[in-house]
């Protein structure tokens, strides 16, 4: 079977990084307390599927908690952010009233809100979730409300001139809004994952399973392969969710505004 070279060009960078990684660890270019070998790292991931491995060593259990928390926080931000973003976008008065406040909150590192959330939610999982919401919501609102400006006003005007049904006009506006909603969704998902991991590094959740906590402990205890396994997993996770959202976006036939 012939493989088109253009379709696999993305492999170049990946192969180069793997070769450099392999060589650096094999020839001790970098100390092995700082850099685990690809084999050791893969072994950690492999063990995760083995039921005889203790729960604390099963990296996918840690990952499932982190993904769950990230998805809940991101989902709330997406829902509230889209509704408020649309409202702020269409009602200019509201946007003018809140834009500076939103920009202010966006500039605050969400990790600073974490201690407050911990106290407010009695050290429960909700503290992690609402820290994510604190970080993602302003971004989502601003992205969606700015996206309203991208709506093709002239196309909407044409519909009005031809006295097209209001439901059709609303539907057209909603579809025109999709690129900014998808853009906001993609940006905030990566951010949600970052906030989730950082907060878990600050304080291990009650159930003791979380990727952030695992990475922190691995680093402290010089379990370098575990640390790199977490790193790999997070990279793949962010990458694949982004890819998935892009696919969904394409499914809707949405044109890219900002990429």
């Amino acid at each position: 079977m012939m493989i088109n070279r253009k379709n696999i060009i993305w492999l170049n960078g990946l192969i180069l990084v793997l070769i450099l990684w392999y060589l650096s660890s094999s020839f001790d270019w970098i100390d092995n307390t700082l850099l685990a070998s690809p084999m050791e790292t893969l072994d950690v991931i492999k063990k995760s599927f083995d039921s005889s491995t203790p729960v604390s060593g099963r990296i996918f259990l840690h990952a499932s908690y982190t993904i769950k928390i990230s998805l809940i926080g991101w989902g709330i931000s997406l829902l509230i952010g889209t509704i408020l973003g649309l409202l702020f976008g269409f009602v200019k008065y509201l946007m003018r009233s809140f834009e500076i406040t939103l920009e202010f909150f966006r500039a605050i590192p969400p990790i600073l809100a974490f201690p407050l959330m911990l106290v407010s939610f009695n050290y429960e999982d909700s503290a992690y979730v609402w820290t994510i919401v604190f970080g993602c919501l302003p971004i989502m609102i601003l992205t969606v409300s700015k996206g309203v400006e991208y709506i093709s006003n002239q196309s909407i005007e044409i519909l009005k001139v031809y006295s097209v049904k209001p439901t059709k006009i609303i539907m057209a506006k909603a579809i025109e809004m999709l690129p900014s909603i998808f853009l906001g969704a993609r940006v905030t998902f990566s951010f949600a994952l970052i906030i989730s991991v950082v907060t878990e590094m600050v304080l291990t959740p009650k159930n003791g399973l979380a990727l952030g906590a695992l990475a922190r402990d691995a680093e402290i205890n010089f379990q370098t392969p575990v640390f790199y396994a977490v790193l790999l997993l997070l990279g793949f996770l962010g990458f694949f969710i982004n890819l998935l959202l892009k696919r969904i976006e394409r499914l809707f036939g949405v044109k890219q505004l900002n990429s």
């Binding site: 093709s152 006003n153 002239q154 196309s155 005007e157 044409i158 519909l159 001139v161 031809y162 097209v164 059709k168 057209a172 579809i175 025109e176 809707f252 036939g253 949405v254 044109k255």
Partner: peptide
């Protein structure tokens, strides 16, 4: 009916030209 000046912005990019006309 109306033919606007900035024609590029008067068609939805998520519909074909025909469906843009049909949508009216």
């Amino acid at each position: 009916s109306y033919i606007p000046q900035q024609i590029e912005n008067s068609f939805f990019s998520w519909l074909s030209v025909k469906k843009n006309i049909d949508y009216l």
